[in-house]
């Protein structure tokens, strides 16, 4: 790990001022991803601005039924919060499906949104990686691609976004609030992460001097019947091969409301807009679930080691929707 300067910021104003004057600085919250990346020499900040003491730790109900979550709320705290468990069970389940108890105790909501891919070629400085070194090439092509994206990748990069939490946030229409010395912006989660295109090193919409301060969840009654299903290579402590965040409401024999997002398969947390479009107003049958899933995965581009994810994603979508239906998605 490269030696670095350390600055502790007691509040948002100090933090964003500190980073505005330090072009090679990084915020550190829980550090569960950044410290790994620094130890692996992937991230080499000159300065680390510690924001873990900033009191962005509230989980508050908003007028109208939404919830505002402070960016420094620890993952385990959020997953255990009664507001989240009762109104957005998909989010609590997604968080608990990720990492380990120790990591969730440290990891923050803001940091989780900004975590970087686990592509082994990104992590290995001996390999070519356009994300790590723009223009250097991509050794994942022709290499081990079991954990790589089938949706949203490009010729430059097929790394998958690793977060579980973000998949649930994508399904829930979450909005990310960011702040800098220039002011406050609000970015929908589904627009927060970028597809790699020709610039896979540009991963999000956030500027280098902006700090995530909060995530807001809108009131979403359908989310009380929601579920996160994660499929992975062992029972715990593994990234998703495929995950599905879903919420479903059926009225008068047709799908009245549906939210669907996928993890493990996308270059970013993947909101399944096409599947949602087909499901809305359709009969809640396995057949229509299957058709919607297939349509969502139709643009998928597979590599030799991850072709199975397309069928796995379709099966997992169908099974998850069917379970939601059985669990009371029908009103």
């Amino acid at each position: 790990m490269k030696a670095f300067a350390y600055v502790s910021a007691p509040d948002v104003a100090t933090a964003v001022r500190a980073i505005a004057t330090e072009p090679r600085a990084k915020f550190i919250g829980g550090g569960t991803n950044l410290v790994d990346l620094m130890r692996e020499d992937i991230e080499r900040p000159d300065t680390v601005v510690d924001i873990s003491g900033i009191a962005l730790t509230g989980v508050e109900e908003l007028a109208g039924g939404g919830v505002r979550i402070g960016a420094m709320v620890r993952n385990s705290h959020l997953a255990a919060h009664p507001l989240i468990r009762s109104r957005y069970p998909v989010l609590a389940q997604a968080i608990l499906a990720g990492a380990s108890g120790q990591l969730r105790n440290m990891a923050t909501v803001g940091g989780n949104i900004l975590q970087r891919t686990r592509c082994p070629y990104f992590y290995d400085r001996a390999a070519a990686c356009n994300k790590r070194e723009p223009g250097s090439g991509c050794d994942a092509f022709g290499g081990f691609t079991r954990n790589h994206a089938v949706l949203g990748g490009s010729e430059s990069c097929i790394a998958a976004h690793p977060s579980d939490m973000c998949v649930a946030l994508a399904a829930l229409d979450a909005v990310v609030e960011v702040e800098s010395v220039r002011g406050v912006r609000r970015i929908p989660l589904v627009e927060f992460h970028r597809l790699p295109g020709a610039t896979p090193h540009v991963e999000t919409d956030i500027a280098a001097d902006e700090l995530i301060t909060a995530v807001e969840l809108p009131a979403l009654p359908v989310a009380t019947t929601s579920r996160y299903r994660k499929v992975r290579d062992r029972a715990s402590y593994a990234f998703a091969l495929v995950s599905v965040a879903a919420a479903l409401e059926v009225q008068h024999g047709t799908v009245a409301t549906v939210r669907l997002a996928l993890g493990g398969v996308g270059a970013k947390p993947w909101r399944a807009h096409e599947a949602e479009r087909l499901l809305l107003g359709a009969a809640p049958t396995e057949e229509s679930f299957r058709r919607a899933a297939a349509a969502e995965l139709a643009p998928a581009v597979a590599q030799p080691h991850n072709a199975f994810k397309i069928e796995l994603a379709e099966r997992t979508i169908v099974a998850t929707l069917a379970q939601l239906l059985a669990a009371g998605g029908a009103a």
């Binding site: 290499g143 062992r234 029972a235 715990s236």
Partner: peptide, 18 residues
């Protein structure tokens, strides 16, 4: 000839839940 999963995250030993 390079080992690409030289860590406990990508090399899957059983966890307790397994």
């Amino acid at each position: 000839g390079r080992i690409m999963n030289a860590n406990l995250s990508d090399y899957h030993v059983p966890v307790h839940a397994d």
